[in-house]
């Protein structure tokens, strides 16, 4: 049965909230403003943290895809779907913050910066993951197909990044903000926000997996309910 006692979650949520408070403090008060770009550079901390969460999610999706294909255990499929969903949400945030950060610095909403392009293509791949998930009825077939999609998507990342970098090598190489060496307080701010987002990722993944498992349980119960009355009736006659 699904453990519906929620005791671990509040503890996790409070600890994540604390980490977030520390991160906000570190980013806004502890870390100095960056000389060249000024305040706007502070977007970078959470921008990179979102990217970390997205990367963690897609790695989990790939690993659970391989695990499903090997073990054929549907719990891996549930974990994979939860991970991809979180990954998609945070990739959207990465793109949003990337553009909002790029606009003032390079006065263009979108630059074909290799990392941003990779995030964009990743966004399409894992959006396609959900389109595929909606197109297949049988659970085991859907799980196998989605596992392959998650693996293919993850395997594609290095190639996308490599080709985006090669693609750009024609354009003049723009000085990249994070290339600037980080003053120690900046580094601590970055590390704290990375930790906060990693904790957040843990909470979201746990919750999403429980929700998907609950939905599956409901489907099974409904299925049994549809059959139950028929058998009950026959037994009586």
């Amino acid at each position: 049965m699904i453990p519906r006692t929620r005791n671990p979650e509040p503890v996790l949520i409070t600890c994540t909230a604390l980490l977030f408070a520390a991160a906000v403090y570190a980013v806004f008060f502890h870390a100095p403003a960056e000389r060249v770009m000024g305040l706007v550079q502070k977007i970078f901390y959470f921008h990179l943290s979102c990217a970390l969460v997205a990367f963690l999610s897609f790695t989990t999706a790939c690993i659970s895809g391989v695990a499903y294909l090997v073990s054929r255990d549907l719990k891996w499929d549930v974990l994979g779907a939860a991970a991809v969903e979180i990954g998609l949400v945070f990739t959207t945030l990465v793109l949003a913050t990337g553009m909002l950060w790029g606009r003032p610095v390079w006065n263009a909403w979108w630059t074909w910066d290799p990392r941003l392009t990779t995030s964009l293509i990743l966004w399409f791949i894992f959006a396609a993951y959900f389109i595929l998930r909606a197109a297949v009825e049988k659970r085991q077939q859907r799980a196998a197909y989605c596992a392959v999609m998650a693996i293919a998507g993850f395997v594609d990342v290095p190639i996308v990044f490599l080709s985006a970098r090669l693609w750009r090598s024609i354009h003049p190489v723009v000085i990249r903000a994070d290339g600037v060496n980080m003053a120690p307080p900046m580094l601590t701010a970055l590390l704290v926000s990375l930790a906060a987002f990693a904790a957040l990722w843990g909470v979201l993944l746990r919750r999403r997996v429980r929700i998907l498992a609950m939905a599956e349980q409901i489907r099974i119960l409904e299925h049994r309910l549809d059959r139950e009355p028929a058998q009950a009736r026959r037994a009586r006659y």
Binding site: R139, R219, I220
Partner: peptide, 8 residues
Amino acid sequence: LCKEYEGC
């Protein structure tokens, strides 16, 4: 041999 389809 065991096989389960969609919960049944």
